[in-house]
Nucleic acid binder design. Structure first.
Lengths: 100, 100
DNA sequence: AATATATATCGACTTTTCCCGATATGCCAA
DNA sequence: TTGGCATATCGGGAAAAGTCGATATATATT
């Protein structure tokens, strides 16, 4: 993954917020009946409601974050759950500390 | 400084390169007769030559990086020298580690 | 004061990003 | 197998970023 793409993914207010929300799912989203926040994350619909942007925009934003290895997705039935990608975020810290 | 602006400043190939060059000025720029890399940094002209973009573009890029607290500038005579802003970069690492 | 040099700012044009509504796809239930 | 959700993808219009050349400003030299 290109470093520039990682920073581009982070250079949008809504996408940054999504990442902060996903750091503390239980504080930021209502209970999910069928899925555990820790295991699979939060479904697109909940993120969309919280962000207040259109469904298509949020779907796109999540895939931008995913391409940058900042979140990871799990499909369960008709839902896609997104959660923080710990490894990707650690790698980002390393890039900043070692290259910039 | 808004977090988004920091990431925007970093989401450009040339600006990222400038930061990596400024991490090791002696490896990336020719000797400067009148100024010490460690003290004041590298002058705009040298950065411009290395980047291969126009003078106006590089001047603008450096001020974007400065507004994001990623570099700091020192005017000495007719030259402006830019160097890495260690504190700003450390703050960025902290933001990522504590909020994302 | 006039000139030369380094950097900053301005105006313009092109490319990219933001964000939407409409539509397609995948999955489940009746 | 048809209908109903959840999500993804597509096409587009508006706003922002990328980049340039021209010009302005600041400083130094003569």
């Amino acid at each position: 993954m290109d470093q520039v793409e990682i920073f581009k993914a982070l250079s949008n207010k809504t996408r940054l917020q999504i990442l902060t929300w996903l750091k503390e799912p239980a504080e930021n989203f209502p209970e999910q009946p069928n899925a555990d926040f820790e295991n699979v994350g939060v479904c697109v619909g909940q993120i969309q409601i919280k962000a207040g942007l259109s469904q298509s925009t949020i779907s796109e934003y999540l895939s931008i974050l995913q391409r940058a290895d900042l979140v990871c997705a799990t499909r369960v039935g008709q839902w896609t759950y997104y959660k923080r990608n710990k490894e990707g975020l650690e790698k980002l810290t390393q890039i900043i500390n070692s290259e910039l």
